[in-house]
Design a protein around this nucleic acid. Structure first.
Lengths: 228, 228
DNA sequence: CCAGTATACTTGTCTGACGATTCGGGGTGA
DNA sequence: TCACCCCGAATCGTCAGACAAGTATACTGG
């Protein structure tokens, strides 16, 4: 909404840095689903005080990247089919509103274009983590470009879990990255043409594809585990 | 989605109770916008430790009920016109999705009906706080009835601010409560008829009315302050 | 073999403290 | 007189250590 470009700098505070680091470890699958994360463990691994670790775990729990109930240790969740459907339903709700709003004014967010470029660059080599990163950045840019702080906040609430599923299932390995890039391009084109309907339809299709890949991967994993 | 009715009991933990209490004080306007809330003040008023108060303020900040930057004391925000428009835009996207989903299966949430009854009861006497409470409960029930945990989570993220605006501007005083009740009934009726389009349209109209009342109130307040 | 208890682990909360940062006020110089 | 700089008060960020309370697990007795 404003032409103001912000330059986000690295985490300044300790808790922020800690939070970012643990978050990355979770979404990249470095910390496996089902794994337990106690406060003392985090505090020990990073040599910070327990309250700091506690705050970090609480923030991650709020974003759905950890599950925890009182007096029980936090664990990285393993999302099942219902979770994924729920997640993608919520995601579609927000992103639909975003692309529709953008298409109404035919504003193609530059950040999204940049993310597309990054994704193309990462498609060549096997940098899966970078691909995922760029994918997230693309969708994030779409929502951010609307200029609604609250819409972005809501998006953040679910984007962590989206990132989590991608990392866990490595769904990007089930299709060629360029397919995703093309789907993204379709969305941007519809936005640039000022066609809200088509933009929404393209977005829905893209998310449907992504969800399908995730569910397929999930079912395959389950059928591999069950007989064993 | 499931017939499971849960019975929420009062806050068990100390931080929970503290959070709820401060939250209520803010949304009821007991703590005026612009007022500063330091950690030591909260800790003192409730005689709890500062870390406990700190956690409370952080949670409220995450919900937009407080604004705070590093090393500066938290203040209750005063929402301006842009904030309100942004808030209602975000709110509409979530609640639209909710009522559409409900209308598709023609399921009228019982909790919403109960909230309506509570609102009618409160309309008689001057229990403004109760009216607001019931209003919030109604919309909350609509979203909760979809059965999507993540949609509910997103809704929570903005509902705090919605509550805040109602408390601050006391917008319910600018119209007869029964008008709101009737608008709510229209929405429920459309849902019961299994008409997603009309349900969304009624909801949009209802939110538009509410936003209009808020903006009117805001403008009046500003014109009263400016010449003084 | 099952049930009940005991123990270890983890979290919730508190106390107390120190360094870092911000903001406002007073002093100094032009 | 006014602008600027410095300093102190207020506040927050982080830490350390401690105890209580709840949970899960292992062990023991019937």
């Amino acid at each position: 909404m404003d032409g103001q470009t912000s330059f986000p700098l690295g985490p300044s505070s300790l808790t922020e840095a800690l939070y970012e680091s643990v978050r990355k470890r979770i979404v990249n699958g470095e910390i496996a689903p089902g794994e337990k994360l106690t406060e003392v463990r985090i505090a020990g691994e990073y040599s910070v005080a327990r309250p700091t670790a506690k705050a970090c775990l609480e923030r991650l729990t709020a974003l759905g990247l950890l599950r925890r109930t009182t007096h029980k240790t936090a664990v990285v969740p393993k999302l099942n089919e219902e979770d994924i459907r729920d997640l993608y339903f919520s995601r579609e709700t927000v992103e639909r509103a975003a692309v529709a709003a953008l298409a109404r004014t035919a504003t193609v967010p530059p950040a999204a274009v940049r993310a597309q470029a990054a994704m193309k660059a990462a498609a060549g080599d096997m940098a899966f983590a970078s691909q995922v990163e760029a994918d997230i950045a693309f969708h994030s840019a779409l929502v951010a470009a609307v200029g609604s702080r609250r819409l972005s906040r809501m998006h953040e609430v679910i984007l962590g879990e989206v990132h989590l599923t991608m990392g866990q299932f490595q769904a990007h390995r089930t299709t060629h990255p360029m397919n995703v890039v093309h789907e993204h391009d379709d969305i941007l084109k519809a936005i640039g043409d000022g066609d809200p309907e088509r933009a929404q339809q393209r977005l829905a299709h893209h998310l449907d594809q992504a969800q399908g890949r995730l569910l397929g991967r999930l079912r395959r994993e389950e059928s591999e585990e069950a007989p064993a």
